[in-house]
């Protein structure tokens, strides 16, 4: 029975794979159906995931097993239910309270994270002596790293008009940004192509058994 279900599963996967790929020709009913099924499945997947991995262990388990010590969790639960009031226009204003707590907390966490890991740590990591390395490649690379970081930041400095001499570091900053965008692009393309190879491998190996 398990083998039969596995075969049915492989055929189902092949059908969905080909339905999505059919969009390369043009929009068609097979693609539309697969797309909508994908939306439904992913929404349900994340809902079930949230229930089992966040709500049950952090809220319901604690409330049902040891209510005396965890009654305070009724507050976030009530706030959560108030959040759902957004669905009812007359009670929509109730959702502003949990939303405010979420926004305030997120803003503070984001601010601390951005300041610690994206600002201070990145500046500290750039303040290195390039000549401590023995390899010329590392020396040149580190010098490029320092120049690129400073010029890149200067490019994002909009408080003074960048013209004449002040345009030079900005221009160098753009070059570094272009190299980075090119690298990110190349990297993304390769990631997508490896996904494509994965799907083709599935079709040719698992479904059609053309390669072994």
């Amino acid at each position: 029975m398990a083998e039969l279900m596995k075969t049915i599963g492989i055929w189902l996967s092949a059908y969905f794979t080909l339905s999505i790929f059919s969009f390369l020709y043009k929009d068609n009913p097979f693609y539309k159906l697969a797309e909508q099924i994908f939306v439904g499945l992913s929404a349900a997947y994340w809902l079930v995931y949230t229930i089992y991995n966040i709500l049950i262990p952090n809220l319901f388990n604690k409330l049902f097993t040891d209510f005396a010590h965890n009654w305070i969790l009724l507050i976030p639960m009530a706030l959560g239910i108030m959040m759902l009031m957004r669905m009812f226009p007359k009670l929509e204003w109730l959702s502003h309270y949990p939303m405010a707590i979420m926004v305030g907390t997120t803003a503070a966490i984001a601010m601390l994270l951005a300041f610690q890991s994206d600002f201070l740590s990145q500046i500290a990591a750039t303040m290195v002596n390039p000549f401590k390395y023995s390899s010329p490649v590392d020396i040149v690379g580190t010098i490029l790293l320092i120049i690129g970081t400073i010029c890149g930041i200067y490019f994002f400095y909009f408080s003074k008009k960048q013209e004449g001499f002040y345009k030079i570091p900005s221009k160098v900053g753009i070059w570094f940004l272009m190299v980075s965008f090119g690298a990110s692009f190349g990297y993304t393309v390769m990631a997508r192509i490896s996904l494509l190879i994965g799907r083709l491998d599935f079709l040719l190996r698992d479904w059609l058994h053309l390669i072994r």
């Binding site: 790293l145 690129g148 400073i150």
Partner: peptide
Amino acid sequence: MQYPNTAAQRAILISAALGVVGASLRII
């Protein structure tokens, strides 16, 4: 990936961090 790309990514991160700090302060 290790040098020019990191340099530009760092510039973006540092600049964006300043923006995030400003936006977060505005919200709080």
